[in-house]
């Protein structure tokens, strides 16, 4: 249950961006959340909605894009989708793989109301 800490970090980051870029009326925060990032989307949303009450982001909502896990086999030099957290190459069964995507936890964009 560290989603509250993560929501706090999102909150602080967005306020910083808002100030430095001189933005107003942020309608939406676009997040990219990897499926192995350890984040529960519902819990993150709940935490963010609790934090934003009576703040300058009170009307801002979160939009999360969940990024599926993708591995890269160093032996086959090929990308593959990781299913059921089985980190083996489906072609050669090697465990020497790198994670290409699925660990993300980033603020991708902000949507501003005209």
């Amino acid at each position: 249950m560290h989603e509250l800490s993560i929501a706090q970090s999102i909150f602080e980051n967005v306020l910083k961006e808002k100030k430095t870029r001189n933005l107003s009326n942020i309608e939406k925060i676009g997040l990219r959340i990897g499926s192995l990032s350890g984040i529960l989307p519902d819990s993150l949303e709940f935490s963010f909605n609790a934090l934003k009450i009576d703040t300058e982001l009170a009307d801002t909502i979160l939009e999360m894009e969940i990024i599926p896990l993708q591995g890269y086999c160093k032996k086959c030099e090929q990308n593959f989708a990781v299913h059921d957290y089985t980190f083996f190459c489906p072609s050669c069964q090697s465990g020497q793989i790198e994670i290409e995507q699925g660990m993300e936890m980033e603020i991708a964009f902000l949507e501003i109301k005209d």
């Binding site: 993560i6 870029r21 309608e27 997040l31 936890m105 980033e106 991708a108």
Partner: peptide, 13 residues
Amino acid sequence: MKKVIIEKKVLSE
């Protein structure tokens, strides 16, 4: 509606 690209890690700090 305007979209501002951020692409910043949440835990960058």
